[in-house]
Each structure stands twice: as C-alpha cells, then as structure tokens.
Amino acid sequence: MEIQAAPPAHQAPLSPSPHLLPPIFQSDTAPPQMITQGAEALLYRTTYLLPTLPCALKYRPSKPYRHPILDARLTKHRILSEARVLVKCRREGVPVPAVYAVDEREGWVMLEWVEGEVVRVKVNEWLRRRKELGVAEGVEEEVLKGLMGRIGRAIGRMHGGGGLCMGDLTTSNLMLRPKREDTVNGEGSRNAGDEVLGGEIVLIDFGLASQSSADEDRAVDLYVLERAFGSTHPRAEGLFSELLGAYGTSFKGANVVLKKLEEVRMRGRKRSMLG
C-alpha cells in the first residue's frame, strides 16, 4: 500500500486508461477504484471475496523507461519480498496490513484496507492549524512528541521483533489509523486540533523492504526517515530526537543502531566533497 502522492491539483483526475489492470480485474462488474499513483505502484480500492470486505489492490505496472529484463526482475523481486515481509511482520505483531493474495508475475498484491491518512498529511495539517492559530514553535508540542514516540516504537518493533528493514522509510509510508472511538466523537476538539495526530501507527509500503538485522541497514532506515522528515516537515525536524529516544528503548540492541546512525550521518554528509 503506497499512498504517496496527492495528485497534483492542476492535473486531471487519474484515469486508469494508461495502465490497464491485469485481465482478472477487468471483467469485474464493480471495477477497482483508483486511489493514488505512488512512485512504484498504483493503488486501487476493491473488495476481496465478499463485497463487504474492502481491500487494497497494489499493482506494479511495468515501467516503460526500464529495460524489460531489469523491469521483470525488479517487479517480481519486489512483489514477492513485499508479501513475504508483510506476512512475517504480521506474525511478529508489527502493525502492517494483512496479505490476502499475490500474483508476482502479473505484478499485483491484495492487502487489507487500512483506514486513515498518511502521517505526512496529518503532520502538515497539524502544523498548518497551529500556524493559523498563532501557536509559536516549541510550545505545546506534546502531541507531536507523542506521535514521534509511537513512530519510534513501531519502527523498533519492525527492526527488533520482525528482523526487517523498510528500505524506504518516509512519512508517506506511515499511516495513522484512527481508533474507533476517535472516529465517533472526534469532534470534541482540545487545543490546536490535537486529535489530528491521534490513532495507531500502521507501516505500509514494503516494496523495498528486506529481511535484515544488520545495524547498518537499520541505521540507514532511520537516516532515510530523518532526512525525509527534515525535507518534508522542516518545522518539525527538531522533534526527531523524540522518535530516536523511543526507538532506543524499544528493543535490545537499539542503542547500537543509534550509534551506527551517527556514522551513517557523517558518511551521508561527506557527499558534498566534489562539484
């Protein structure tokens, strides 16, 4: 499930025509509804087995820019590894959507439908509301800190419990699933729309994930997220330490990863060597 792109406003609504779904989905009386075009995959909403059971259909069409051999190799590898990783996560109690069905040759996987929004959207909404209300930076940030803590623990559970690395950790790959009571009486708002950041963290999009318990890979995961956070939400960058703090206590060996992270940061920064 890759809910990455909000379609650009000036663009016409996404039409499924340039990417025809595999035949099995074409004869359906209720065709899958396109939700979004991520970087890698197209996401549709449809149903699985029962018309009442919503599911996410993630389809990786072949990329016309890639050499066909390379394309087939990557698509097959990513669909399979994603499905394997999700199943393993599920078993280890990491919050991820369940896998319903896979066809790696056709390039699709069917997943449990996760309600809610991605963290990127929610954090930006929260920051915007605060700006409108004129709340200064650094004031009443407990809610955001709480969210950062929950993210840190979720990643910790994936790394420590699941023995997995995401490969592409951004605030677009973390969903906030509203708790049931939140959806019912979420109207009673406290200050600055704090309920915006409520809910359970669900990790999505494991297209680049791998089974790894190397500190290096774990540290790169955190580094990638840190950088994505800094570039997407510059105003919330200062709170990343909250996330790392929660991560550090989430499993045995997390502190070694945090040490490694410092090394990775230094290396990443060295990239400004030449022009």
Binding site: P8, Q37, A39, R120, T170
Partner: peptide, 13 residues
C-alpha cells in the same frame, strides 16, 4: 529515474 519518481510522488510534483 526511480529515486526521482519517488521524490516526485512524495512532494506531489
């Protein structure tokens, strides 16, 4: 191209 596409999807450009 892949990393560029991912960034485009991420920022919605």
């Amino acid at each position: 191209v892949e990393i560029t596409e991912r960034a485009m999807a991420h920022v919605g450009s």
